[in-house]
Design a binder for these strands. Sequence first.
DNA 1: AACGTTCATATGAACGTTCAAACGGAGACC
DNA 2: GGTCTCCGTTTGAACGTTCATATGAACGTT
Lengths: 356, 356
Amino acid sequence: MNVRNQPQPAAFTPLGTIRGGVTIEDVAHQARVSRQTVSNVINAPHRVKPETNLRVKAVIDTLGYRVNRSARNLRTQQSRVIGYCLPPINAAGNSVLDAFLHALVEAAKDRGYHLLLVTAQDKTSEMNSYWELAAQSAVDGIVFAQTDYDDPRPPALLDAKVPFVSFGRTWGKVEHSWVDVDGAAGTRMATEHLLQLGHRSFAFIGHSTRSVGNVERERGVIDSLVAAGIDPEENLSLIDVDGDTSVADQLALVLDGTHAPSAIVTVNDVHAVTALAELERRGLTPGHDVGVVGFDDSPVASVAGGGLTSVRQPLGRVATELIGALASQFDRPAGQPRGVLLSPELIVRRTTIGAP
Amino acid sequence: MNVRNQPQPAAFTPLGTIRGGVTIEDVAHQARVSRQTVSNVINAPHRVKPETNLRVKAVIDTLGYRVNRSARNLRTQQSRVIGYCLPPINAAGNSVLDAFLHALVEAAKDRGYHLLLVTAQDKTSEMNSYWELAAQSAVDGIVFAQTDYDDPRPPALLDAKVPFVSFGRTWGKVEHSWVDVDGAAGTRMATEHLLQLGHRSFAFIGHSTRSVGNVERERGVIDSLVAAGIDPEENLSLIDVDGDTSVADQLALVLDGTHAPSAIVTVNDVHAVTALAELERRGLTPGHDVGVVGFDDSPVASVAGGGLTSVRQPLGRVATELIGALASQFDRPAGQPRGVLLSPELIVRRTTIGAP
DNA sequence: AACGTTCATATGAACGTTCAAACGGAGACC
DNA sequence: GGTCTCCGTTTGAACGTTCATATGAACGTT
């Protein structure tokens, strides 16, 4: 009685009315085989005689049958869903979110997984969300980002036996799988590019928080300067975006001081735009008078200041590696954790090499 | 044998090891009641004697029991998950995505739903994804955005009986629930603000595509000019971001022509940043010489050009209405479709009122 | 001809939950 | 004391799959 063998609507390919679902039993009956054979056609076609295979597939098409996820998940004890917590919205936004999310969803799809979103106020409630999802068998594993030094999430998730990978290292006490982009290498590339252009006095606009990403990016600048024989104490001004004073004001102060920077490296594109605005207010031309480099190569980067030089992260690769690492944990839960460090790329534009 | 009554780890509140799940039967046994009573404690506590309630809850806490979603979904024939397709990444990015997604996830959570992501190349594959998700009972309904005139999605989903709401009107032949922000009102506010400041010649930077959002935003500008007795034919230059010529070049051409605009309204913040760059290249000061207004009030808006005047959409409200509309379809599938039009807000900053 | 092997398909059980109905006891009413 | 009602609880069945195992036919070997 469950059979709803209705004609295909013209609109678009598979279709057929959804609710009142067609079951595997309906297909089996119509194809004159058993449930299990239909199941085999879907999950292990090599076990089925080619002829039967074709016949069952035809019926599946006609009825527009699709496996019921809940039933399958219940039986197989997995959900084929991966959980991800959206990083909190901060003033500077999250310029990689859009591209990263796309890449993550795509990478998950390629391996037969879907992405389920949650949000959280803080890391504790984030961990609780993860635990809830896993305890309810709503997800098979977790991807999280924005790691801190000694991040509390890895030990907690390890303890709860929830499979996970992080986008970002944590340098914590426990071993776990991670994928990261070498932020220090990114800002090294930026700094060396600026050094080559003749700049000798720098500013770095970044966070005072100890998140791994921030610290690494700052370190990259310092390392390059030291390697070039330039004293960071004297020729690198650090500007804190989380401070009480606005970035524009801090920048103004620095530009008016001794050792006024002629090159500015930033922790992300939004802060680079802030810098551009301040420079222009002073009649300084980015790329000519002062070199500016952003980070993330977000959509604004291609237009800000006529083209903002920026560090691009290989987000597609990051996503693939993340999902791959998770999937390998599903396959052998006792496997060795693995870290993958990827290199970013410097996209050179007008704000470092522009004519006046 | 399934019982894993292990001590609570210190790390964070609920916890306990995940895999090898505790079932409702384990709880029932330990609390000396039947399955169904445990189920009632969770889903209909009023049916249970207060004393029993407490006892069962204590056991649930001790064992760290959580309902298995797959089993519940299978039995109740719903997933409590909503599907959403990430809009394709275009050159200008999607400046509202971050904030909107957050709002959507939050709104869904408030009603006991989760958000599941998919991506798609085009509208056809998008519709297929939706159909697959619904046919598999992986989602109860769909939210989609970026509507076109005569969008193919509403008729197709209606046909397939997949519950859905759109963020954006479609002006199509079929009736369906939607939530939208009045884009025309947004650019009217922007234009009137600029008119009040004395501007008489305008440019609008937008798409040539016929998506509802674009057209409405352009219409708002035209309507305001007409109402103020200004002829758009003469005093409004339209710049097409999808054209062969770059936006900067088109803008340059317009600024050099007769009726050079002193005010620029854009379809989103990224294009406003493009305009800012071109103005500054010409030594024109935004806010003093030329007024610039963006759209979306994305994170760059607060810093670009020292503060970009922009139109902010009430995304939290949009999300709540979207989820509410979907939920009401679940409750009574035969209910009347309903449209909700919300008003945006103009955030005035330096690029329209700034001192030189 | 009897037996073992392989291939294709079918059957029973189980995954963990909620629904529908049944049960038993306490109290109210006649 | 018997019957009715209500409350709290239990029991059997069902949701739609896949796993483990059984069945039976076809074929090759001795």
